[in-house]
């Protein structure tokens, strides 16, 4: 269940974003991608989430190049990956309906219809996995609230629960706490560690060095058009092999 980017070259038009980027994430580990704003952390996560194919190189899941398979097979891979964005991007619906979304799209059309009809006559009260995921982020009690009534921090926690509910193998997090207060940040970080405990591989893009130190098993430093260093978190922060890493971590490298 390893997800890998292998020698990825990517860009838009004449702009080069990556030149030979490689990164992997395995079950039950947290990998933090650190780097300055605009370096391409989100682009790398979108490539790993199979939004776009890289211009060159490959994205592999369980050693299978995902862009060499049929669209249906790729959809199966996509459905084993979850993603949380910097903005919560919740749907205009209740908290419960948001949390259930990933489970709902995995059902057949007839099952969906049956489930919707059961909901209308009150024979079902939501999916257990979605409620469990809401419990993980401390929002079980708000399940029947409108998502639009939540604070920014709560909304982001629901977005996390929405991705956690269908138990993906890999969870990709694009600066999920950059707009949050310390309390909500702590809840999300606890949920990330809970995901790791359940065996989910997590990749988190962050520019918060302390956060990377707190939760990551490995750190990848994205500078320029490449990952210049990947390693054990403590090693990267204490004894970086690349001088640019040290300068970036200590705030001497300005981009």
């Amino acid at each position: 269940m390893t997800l890998e980017a292998i020698d990825v070259h990517h860009g838009y038009g004449t702009e080069t974003v990556f030149e030979g980027v490689s990164l992997s994430v395995s079950p039950g580990e947290v990998v933090a991608i650190i780097g300055p704003s605009g370096v391409g952390k989100s682009t790398l996560l979108r490539l790993l989430a199979l939004f776009d194919a890289p211009n060159r190189g490959s994205i592999e899941y369980e050693n299978q190049a995902v862009w060499d398979v049929s669209e249906q097979r790729r959809l199966e891979y996509r459905r084993r990956i979850g993603m949380v964005f910097q903005e919560a991007s919740l749907f205009d619906a209740s908290v419960r309906r948001n949390a259930e979304y990933g489970l709902r799209v995995r059902r057949s059309w007839t099952d969906r219809l049956r489930h919707e009809l059961s909901s209308l006559v009150g024979k079902t009260n939501g999916t257990g996995d979605a409620i469990d995921a809401l419990e993980t982020v401390g929002l079980r009690e708000q399940a029947d609230q409108d998502a639009s009534s939540l604070s920014g921090g709560e909304a982001q926690r629901v977005a996390f629960a929405r991705a956690l509910a269908y138990e993906p193998d890999i969870l990709l997090l694009d600066e999920p706490t950059s707009d949050l207060d310390p309390r909500n940040t702590a809840v999300i970080e606890d949920a990330i560690l809970e995901a790791r405990r359940r065996g989910i591989g997590v990749v988190i893009a962050t520019h918060d060095m302390h956060q990377a130190e707190r939760i990551a098993d490995r750190v990848a430093v994205l500078l320029g058009n490449d990952i210049i260093e990947v390693g054990n978190t403590e090693t990267v922060f204490e004894n970086p092999t690349d001088e640019r890493t040290r300068k970036f971590i200590e705030g001497e490298l300005i981009y």
Partner: peptide, 18 residues
């Protein structure tokens, strides 16, 4: 409808129809 809402639907495993 914001692009990030549609991206979220896709990222949760939604098809183009979803």
């Amino acid at each position: 409808v914001e692009q990030n809402v549609r991206d979220a639907a896709y990222a949760m495993g939604g098809t183009k129809t979803d």
